[in-house]
Nucleic acid binder design. Structure first.
Length: 557
RNA sequence: GCGCCCGUAGCUCAGUGGAUAGAGCGUUAGGUUGCGGACCUAAAGGUCGUGGGUUCGAGUCCCGCCGGGCGCACCA
């Protein structure tokens, strides 16, 4: 479409490079006010300076060209039929475009022909599919997932779903620490409770620790007794046990990981060593005060960063660079890290190290998920895994349900801090927008069932139903076909709220349609059949958007 | 002190440089002898924290200030 507009730019500059630049800069959008047409472009205003002509003049020239061209094509001569039926100028120089009426019908028929593919988009011509690694949650297995982990889980999973829908190949990955200080503390805490002692100041005090202490299997207990390091044996057993619990909690959310990568394996499999070797060969390392440093300041960092401490132990940063090496070795084009906002301090150093290792930092993206303040009875709930004062993810889902929770997080940008009032979420259960969308879907299905019971089948083609573009039918149709745009936007910008907006708007449009248009109507069987096809397409599109969100699309409620 | 994020309707939040800044909830007034009333229609409600700047055009980009959150370890 950009090309179509640019080629219509009669007074285009001779300079080919300038023209390319112009084409890239053209923005096309759906105008807020539907009386302005189907799409609008700002090309005239953008190019005004370059062409040294007034925006309104340029827009008028393009509109005339496009209209003439559309006319020619429609009237036969040229073989292909363009998408644009008309163009006009408005305001300071907006170019408003109207699509050929038949185009909408074509789209709807395509939905009915291939319902399973609807919502999947192909970006191959513009943007080849990528092999993408999305790492998220990655909470250490020292306790069950809490509501604090919820947002990252939903954000990461939804992003993965959207990228898949846009044609990318996605690996969902969970990174966890199965050795070191935290696991030792867990082991000490479990042992203390088993022996009837008090948990130390730095230990874990949640109820689950006591449950673990009571559930140590005989063989593990025996191994611990024989081992010189009982804390290590018990700690590892406990953390693996907890990790399994985390996996099943995530399954309740509808989130499944392809890869569980332990931090320890980055050492035992030599990845950290290989990463260090790469840095060394580029002369990015320095031994100082007995420690090994990465010269991060060469990349604009405030200070150099320690990889290996003077004690010989590695830092988290050491693991991080080993992990970068390991991930890229698997052939990913792009790495996405979904991190809590509190990790922002480590973003620069990891990307700098990656660059020093010879990777492009543009291929690494850290998506920082903002904090959620959980509020109950007007009070912020402070949570600490060590102190044992927290609400688990499982408990949250029991209270408000997966669909509500998914919608809540999906409809908000990951970068804004949000308040989550649990009492309010519960109280608003039946008023939650997610039910509005689901209800609309159930109602669509109900209509289709009723029609079937009365022996009216959907038409094989939508035909002329949408020719009157002001009709309730056409209004609904225009919403239905917008899903691919919402998916593409979300995949391009890595912002997924648009999907919930789409679902809400489609549900709203359907409610209005439902009010104005009778679908199952034996007195006008022809129109009734066409409308059934429209309703079926609406159901397909709404269900596809809900599936993308990981939310159920019920047949009845 | 330095860095990053945030500030939009009573509340919770969308708004990807474009036209009259939107949605849900809440408030107010209405609506069904039709396919699901978990619905629909309408109204009220805004100094987009604030002051400058860039631009034909700024909630959006830049700078300052105010307010809030987070981070600034040879911790994990």
């Amino acid at each position: 479409m950009r090309r179509a507009i640019a080629s219509g730019a009669a007074p285009a500059p001779d300079d080919a490079a300038a023209l390319e630049l112009l084409i890239a800069g053209i923005e096309i959008e759906v105008p807020a006010n539907e009386t302005y047409g189907d799409y609008a472009s700002n090309i005239a205003m953008k190019s005004s300076k370059l062409l040294k002509r007034a925006p309104a003049q340029i827009a008028a020239a393009i509109a005339a060209e496009l209209t003439a061209e559309a006319g020619e094509r429609l009237h036969g001569a040229a073989g292909s039929i363009g998408p644009i039926a008309g163009a006009s100028v408005a305001g300071p120089g907006f170019l408003n475009l109207t699509l050929r009426a038949g185009l909408l019908a074509d789209h709807l028929d395509a939905i009915a022909t291939k319902p399973d593919a609807w919502g999947q988009i192909l970006r191959r011509d513009v943007d080849p599919p990528q092999k993408i690694n999305v790492e998220f949650v990655s909470a250490n297995p020292t306790g069950p997932l809490t509501i604090g982990n919820a947002r990252g889980a939903f954000v990461g999973d939804l992003l993965a779903r959207v990228l898949e829908a846009a044609g990318d190949e996605v690996t969902r990955e969970y990174y966890f620490n199965d050795f070191g200080e935290q696991v030792r503390r867990l082991g000490e805490s479990v042992i203390a409770l088993r022996d009837g002692a008090e948990v130390g100041e730095n230990g874990y005090k949640g109820e689950y620790v006591g449950e673990l202490a009571a559930a140590i299997p005989a063989d593990v207990a025996a191994r611990a007794a024989e081992s010189a390091d009982a804390v290590e044996v018990i700690g590892r057993w406990a953390s693996e046990k907890i990790r399994g619990g985390i996996e099943s909690s995530l399954a309740n959310l509808g989130v499944a990981f392809d890869v569980w990568r332990s931090e320890g394996s980055l050492y035992t499999d030599g990845w950290v060593e290989r990463a260090i070797e790469r840095l060394r060969s580029g002369d990015w390392l320095e031994e100082r005060d007995g420690a090994l440093w990465f010269k991060s300041t060469a990349f604009g960092d405030d200070k150099d960063r320690v990889i290996r401490k003077s004690t010989g132990a590695y830092t988290y940063f050491g693991s991080d660079i080993g992990y970068v090496e390991e991930k890229f070795s698997r052939g990913f084009d792009h790495l996405i890290y979904v991190w809590g906002a509190d990790h922002h301090g480590t973003v620069a150093r990891v990307r700098n190290a990656a660059e020093a290792m010879g990777y492009q930092k543009e291929h690494m993206e850290m998506l920082l998920v903002a904090w959620v303040r959980f509020i109950r009875d007007g009070e912020e709930m402070s949570m600490s895994k060590r102190a044992g004062t927290f609400i688990t993810l499982d408990e949250l889902l029991e209270e408000i349900g997966v669909d509500s929770a998914r919608w809540f997080f999906a409809s908000r940008s990951a970068s804004t801090a949000i308040d989550f009032d649990i009492e309010l979420a519960k109280a608003e259960n039946s008023e939650n927008p997610v039910y509005y969308a689901q209800y609309a879907h159930a109602r669509m299905k109900s209509i289709l069932r009723k029609a079937e019971a009365e022996g009216i089948a959907p038409a094989a083609a939508i035909g002329d139903l949408l020719d009157d573009e002001t009709s309730a039918d056409a209004r609904l149709a225009r919403r239905i076909v917008r899903l691919p745009e919402a998916v593409e936007d979300a995949a391009t910008h890595h912002e997924t709220q648009g999907i919930t907006t789409f679902a809400t708007e489609l549900a709203t449009a359907f409610s209005a349609f439902y009010r104005d248009a009778k679908v199952v109507d034996a007195s006008d069987a022809t129109r009734s059949a066409k409308r059934l096809r429209l309703v079926a397409a609406a159901a397909t599109s709404l269900a596809a958007s809900l599936r993308l969100l990981g939310i159920s699309a019920p047949e009845e409620m």
